[in-house]
Design a protein around this nucleic acid. Structure first.
Length: 423
RNA sequence: GGAGAGGUGGCAGAGUGGUAAUGCAGCAGCCUGCUAAGCUGUCAUCCUUCGGGAUGCCCGGGUUCGAAUCCCGGUCUCUCCGCCA
């Protein structure tokens, strides 16, 4: 969430920049400021009452020590009113603080200056494009048909075992998945990210830490018996490593990477856009996460973008980069770049990575801070990105690399698959 | 699943009813001609009229003039036993 002092001091600018998201934040911000003032007034009142009763208590203690029990007992009588009013005041204070927090949770991150205004994904700004879109032969098929033809992904079997959206990868399909995971992790560790393996279930506190709870509860699978949630992305366990952490400035920057399966309920999705690998309830993803000094976080974002570009270039997949518009950018993000790979047989772009700078928005909730040069605690910046989400990369490879005699494996993956063709 | 112990600042670690010691690390300053030491301040959060004040000892209640300390509920961690990849 946003920092209260920041809102207080930059009220107009915050409203103006939130307008890029097509929201009129003025009523919300106005109310935040009013509630904040009321809260501070109550706090001052309460502090005064408590100060008085503390000093009386101290006096009583001293009187008892020096054997003046009678005077002490007389003083006790004076505390009744103070107790009553401190109780009322602290109840009011709690109410105000809760109401204030409720409002703060509803305010999304302030978009970066470069974020274009706009309503939907149609207003996103294409900033880069690379790779040849191949001329496919006349018998070219979408990936779900290819998966069937070469018997590498079995969607029906997944239906039987679990339900729709839980495909079973078989033979060379399974091996190709594993190859992609290894390749991505190797690229990430070469770039300086430290490899982690995360829990795939997280507790409530972690869900709150990265903002999935309370708002997006319905998007996660909930294991009610133990009150745990299946992770929708490695961002959740990966970023919660830093919950309630105080770093030294010299610890920064931190870069970590990890592979996890991701579980998403995707309630309400249907139709052609969820065919095949396009949208799944369980999928694999390799994630990169960074914790940065505020002065360096946008450089870090650039370097993440460049890193992913390099991977896609090596895979020789046609892709483009979008700068997300205000209407499409995530709630917690200040600036997001999406990578999309072209699905030739479907004739559409598929999102395979989303790279974001959250600035202090996540860190504020997480209480992720570092000791700065003045020895003061300062919120760090967090960033993350997929590098990459597997199913749509796989879809892109299957469709773009298909030939009449089979599917050619991208050169860079052959050392990992051990075969050159799926045929 | 059963039994026991425990949760105190960035870390370590005292404190069993009178209002959070001490050490280490960090930061700032002073001093000193050695890869360093010493001294002073600072070093959890909030409010502040910058004098201070309040909160904070896992979380939530309670007893008390006063709770880290006593009572109740919850939670997490550790140890042992059981089960087990």
């Amino acid at each position: 969430m946003l920092q209260l002092p920041f809102i207080r001091e930059n009220k107009e600018a915050v409203i103006k920049r939130l307008a890029v998201r097509n929201i009129d934040a003025k009523p919300l911000i106005d109310q935040v400021i009013i509630l904040d003032e009321e809260r501070r007034a109550l706090q001052t009142q309460l502090d005064n009452v408590l100060a008085e009763s503390n000093s009386i208590s101290k006096e009583i203690g001293m009187l008892f020590k020096s054997g003046k029990a009678e005077e002490a007992n007389a003083l006790k009588a004076k505390t009744g009113d103070l107790k009553e009013s401190s109780k009322t005041l602290s109840e009011q204070l709690n109410q105000k603080a809760d109401a204030l927090n409720q409002l703060l949770y509803q305010i999304p991150n302030v978009p970066h200056d470069s974020v274009p205004s706009g309503n939907t994904d149609e207003d996103n700004e294409e900033i880069y494009k690379e790779g040849e879109i191949p001329q496919l032969h006349s018998e070219a098929l979408p990936h779900w048909e290819l998966a069937k033809k070469y018997d590498i992904i079995d969607f029906e079997l997944g239906n039987k075992i679990t339900g729709a959206g839980f495909p079973v990868y078989k033979g060379k399909g399974a091996r190709l998945q594993r190859a992609l995971i290894s390749y991505f992790l190797d690229k990430n560790t070469e770039a300086g990210y430290t490899e982690f393996q995360f829990p795939h279930l997280v507790n409530e506190a972690s869900g709150f830490g990265t903002g999935q709870l309370p708002d997006k509860e319905g998007q996660m699978y909930h294991v009610t018996g133990d009150n745990l949630y299946l992770i929708p992305t490695a961002e959740v366990p990966g970023t919660n490593i830093f919950r309630d952490v105080l770093l030294n400035e010299s610890d920064l920057p931190i870069g970590i990477t990890g592979y996890t399966p991701c579980f998403r309920r995707e309630a309400g999705s249907y139709g052609a856009h969820v065919r095949g690998l396009n949208r799944l309830h369980q999928f694999d993803k390799v994630e990169i996460i960074r914790v940065e000094h505020p002065d360096n976080s946008y450089n870090a974002l650039d370097s993440m973008v460049n890193h992913i570009k390099e991977i896609l270039k090596e895979l020789k997949l046609p892709y483009r980069i979008l700068r997300l518009c205000g209407g499409d950018i995530g709630f917690t993000s200040a600036l997001t770049f999406d990578f999309e790979v072209f699905s030739t047989a479907q004739d559409r772009w598929l999102e395979i990575s989303s790279v974001s700078n959250f600035e202090t928005y996540q860190a504020n909730r997480l209480k992720l801070r570092f000791k700065n040069k003045e020895g003061k605690n300062e919120l760090a910046h967090t960033l993350n990105g997929s590098s990459l989400a597997l199913p749509r990369v796989l879809a892109g490879i299957l469709e773009n690399y298909q030939t009449e005699k089979g599917i050619k494996i991208p050169d860079v993956l052959v050392p990992y698959t051990g075969f050159e063709w799926i045929d």
